[in-house]
Design a protein around this nucleic acid. Structure first.
Lengths: 192, 192
DNA sequence: TTCACTTTGTGACATTTGTCTCAGGTGCGC
DNA sequence: GCGCACCTGAGACAAATGTCACAAAGTGAA
């Protein structure tokens, strides 16, 4: 057992909400670090999503398969949470896959255990609410990107606001995330 | 003061979470129905968003202005909540406008009053968390629509899953919501 | 190193979508 | 009724993007 106060996860939780040391301990009691090798899949299309995941190191790729082609819908880098909320909440099969894009370290929170903590501790439920707020804001932002910008503008946006995307994610994978083909993304870059 | 148990809002709250009658009363104490005429604006780009809104009757249109053109990012029909979470949470100026698309009845919840209730009542904070879950799932779904479908497929999706859109929203307004121009949407419809 | 494999760049061409323009229709107020 | 604003449909052309085929560059393992 390492000192959990050294982790990014600890800093994330305490930065997000006012929370007692004992509540933080309760959260750490239901999770532990898990190593993933590059390419390892932690959620498969068709399966139920049972956990919320925090990325301590590395990054996760969320994608759907459609007519044999991967479409990347999200990338979660270190210091962020991700899940498939629709599947998590309703126990429906997930429409997305989640896979490690690099060798990674994650913390997983089981839905049921988290719900028990919510019931027992208002402080922890408050944390849960703020976590959802963050996820929703990020989603809003990404959604807007598609609504108001052209593919080239979306690329510029990433370049300026999330340069880690371009450094760590391959062009092919970035393309579907930006909603264009690989060739179009090449054309966009050529014009610079 | 009408009987609040007759409202859609009451049914929405009690359907979403287990909540005592007294907590529901507390929620209704901080809001009251407000009538909007068609075209009335309740949130302007550049202003801070201070409230979460429930639509009891009619619908709201959320849009951004870019180079003189409206881009619709959301439509909220009766029995749903909406807000601009980014602005609400951080007090930043909103990037979106919200306007009544029909003569409407809404309930507004002030952020500060809601936060006070959250602090005082875990049951109400739990409601707040579940509300966010719903908003996030809806957002996830809409986002996916853009990622995996072509404009024509997006139109079909609405046709099958949200027919009220096509009946109540004009083609011009629908177009930007689907991420295409008015002319392209006409072409899509012509092909049927 | 070589070899197999994956990723990226490029060009030709087809398709889709956008832009601009106009015409007809509809609803609303005067 | 009339005019007026708004919405929809349509065509011609330009621009952007997709599709396909293949070459070039990078990667990792034997």
């Amino acid at each position: 057992m390492g000192d959990h106060t050294k982790t990014l996860l600890f800093k994330k939780i305490t930065g997000l909400t006012d929370i007692s040391a004992s509540s933080v301990r309760k959260l750490f009691k239901i999770t532990s670090p898990r190593q993933l090798f590059k390419g390892e899949i932690i959620l498969k299309q068709g399966q139920g999503c049972k956990t919320i995941v925090f990325v301590e190191k590395g990054y996760l790729r969320t994608f759907m398969e459609r007519e044999g082609i991967d479409i990347n819908t999200d990338f979660t880098f270190e210091n962020n949470f991700t899940t498939n909320l629709k599947s998590l909440r309703s126990n429906l099969p997930s429409e997305t896959n989640i896979q490690a894009g690099e060798s990674s370290t994650i913390y997983e929170f089981e839905k049921d255990e988290l719900l028990n903590l919510y019931k027992a501790s208002p402080e922890i439920e408050s944390f849960g609410r703020k976590l959802l707020e963050q996820l929703l804001i990020a989603q809003e932002e990404h959604s807007t990107l598609f609504k108001i910008y052209s593919p080239a503008e979306r690329y510029d946006y990433l370049l300026n606001n999330k340069p880690e995307f371009l450094q760590r994610v391959s062009l092919s994978q970035l393309a579907s995330y930006l909603g264009v083909t690989r060739e179009t993304l090449t054309r966009i870059r050529r014009k610079k």
